[in-house]
Design a protein around this nucleic acid. Structure first.
Lengths: 348, 348
DNA sequence: CGCCTGATTGCAAACGTTTGCATTTTTGTA
DNA sequence: TACAAAAATGCAAACGTTTGCAATCAGGCG
């Protein structure tokens, strides 16, 4: 802006030549590029004094190692790919609360372990090849897939050829890919048991049953309901927050015949449902019992506080990171199924 | 498992040799690597028939271009870096709701435009060099910084040397770095005006004033309060959800002298505050007016529904992406300040 | 049939590191 | 002082693409 450059110019040290490549720096230091590389990598082969001198010069000349070149040469990237397939509901936004929470914890875990995280949102039916493209791109050392969506078969196929991949989702007997996830069937059972214990005589399952996680939740709830002779019915609803409210309103207005207990496939759906119920003056839990799924931070903050099935997201993220790193080390890890936990609050 | 390999082996076509490099594929196709490269890039210089043949072979042999090498050679990466500095509150988790929502929209925007997204969480006081390291790594074509935290000076310094960077945060007169953000001062004014109009006679500002965004919100509220002769006081609170509840409870238990209107620095704080108030039997808005900030999706789902200052996160993400891409094209863009909007619901 | 033009293709040099091996320098020992 | 061993450095070949330039080829025209 207004620095008096002309007055002091002759006094200033010349701005240090910027060393862009390791070769620039080697020339400045009067050594070979190889030595610079070893010095900056902290290898023991270089003389301690040389190393210090080179490190000082690197700082002074603002040198940054070109990661692209380094990674090409070393054939590893230090990057973990995170893919979020949006197959079952194209309108489901990547900013889905559950995925975002899981992603946040994952970022913490992986950053802590020195990895960067490359995020990719994929719309499978637009790009049938997405998983192979991602794992084969050479840009990532391993891949975490958040949510199987409706891509189970494709993931199985990729797992056969590609070791370092771990998936968040549902576990099925005999599947090949390594998965971390909550026992959704057991979670569904817990939800139904709670609703019935709270006095529900007919249950509605709010959500989609296309993604296998949700299908398992419904199946779990149904197994309990069938045992106890309680009717249960699916109330199909999309998952994107924008559309859910209207669809819930439509359900509430039409086909609720006898339903006095709702098991929502996710907390966000449960909260949207609660709002719609309250709009209609239906008391929760007086007129309608309600159980959610996930136990997002927000679940404890609603009024009445939401009874829900807790997925331990932080633990899940830690397991995902742990298993992936072990697979990257060549180990062939087994899947992990986390136990769900009923968090009894006020809505059922 | 149990495939009868020995019986049918002689019938099967030999599994196609897997082409790992462009040179493999060139050998198979009987052309030079250069031609393969051009064919796969869809350049017009190659004969259409040759191109088709090579594309078919690439599919057949499962060839994937090594992005690392490609990007090294082309000197561009197709990756946008997203950095989340956690300076002002080391305990603020990356899974902060507002950042995650913004990140989700950003991922959508950038994916749509063909870029990948590399996420990095930085703890500035552990690593004073974080920004330079990120932009100089050669791993990204441009950088988006989400939140200035307390790193204003460092960001300014980096902006002087590095064009393709856009920051989400607060705008200050005369700053050098290109920022997109809500007019926090104006937002603070809206909040205070609403509280006062609703009858508040003394205002508490719930949150930290260390990050400049929050400082500006407080300053805006204070300017209105001072004009109207309404006392206003800061109630310092950390932002991480785990700690906020206890701190809010402590405030509520001790130094609320006369406060009957609270302006919370974020919706999450507002919701936590509402829960604490309700625990104590204080009616909202009867006994305490409450205004939040952000208008997260959840704000409309609370009971009573939260009155808040809306930041248009989707629009902000779109502007961030747009400005960054233009900067990557060499343009020197000006900052964008988005107008906040009062969303009047039930809490004030 | 020869020459010219334009369309394809091949060649080889980058991009900036890392690393095995050879070479030089230093150190220790006889 | 000489020699071996150890330590430090240099050399050059990778890593897998892309791309400017040169070479080849096919076709058209006189």
């Amino acid at each position: 802006m207004s620095e008096p450059t002309h007055e002091t110019a002759q006094e200033l040290a010349p701005p240090p030549e910027r060393a862009r490549t390791i070769t620039d720096l080697a020339r400045i230091a009067g050594v070979s590029p190889g030595t610079v590389s070893r010095a900056l990598a902290g290898k023991s082969l270089v003389n301690a004094k040389t190393r210090e001198r080179i490190e000082a010069l690197a700082r002074e000349h603002g040198f940054r190692l070109n990661q692209m070149a380094s990674r090409l040469r070393r054939q590893k990237t230090g990057v973990i790919g995170v893919a979020i397939p949006l197959g079952h509901d194209r309108r489901q936004h990547i900013s889905d609360a559950f995925f975002m929470t899981l992603l946040g914890y994952l970022a913490d875990e992986l950053t802590e372990r020195g990895y960067d995280l490359m995020l990719r949102r994929v719309i499978p039916d637009r790009d049938g090849d997405w998983l192979d493209r991602f794992v084969g791109s050479g840009m990532v050392d391993g891949v975490i897939v958040i949510g199987q969506s409706d891509q189970f078969e494709r993931i199985e196929a990729a797992a056969a050829r590609f070791l370092p991949m771990v998936v968040w989702g549902n576990h099925q007997e005999g599947q090949r890919h390594c998965v971390v996830g909550t026992d959704n069937f057991a979670g569904g059972r817990l939800a139904a048991e709670r609703l019935i214990a709270a006095g529900a005589s007919t249950i509605g399952f709010l959500g989609s049953t296309d993604p296998i996680e949700f299908a398992a939740r419904y199946a779990g709830a149904k197994s309990v309901a069938d045992d106890k002779g309680v009717p249960i019915r699916a109330l199909p609803t999309h998952l994107s927050p924008e559309h859910a409210a209207d669809e819930i309103a439509a359900h509430l207005a039409s086909d609720m015949a006898g339903i006095d207990g709702i098991f929502a496939a996710s907390d966000m759906l449960a909260i949207a449902c609660m709002t719609e119920l309250q709009k209609r003056g239906i008391d929760v839990p007086g007129g309608m019992k309600l159980v959610g799924f996930d136990d997002l931070p927000i679940a404890s903050q609603t009024r009445p506080a939401l009874t829900t099935i807790r997925q331990d997201i932080a633990a899940g993220a830690a397991r995902l990171a742990d298993l992936l790193l072990r697979r990257m080390g060549g180990e062939n890890t087994a899947s992990v199924v986390l136990p769900p936990e009923l968090v009894g609050r006020q809505t059922a």
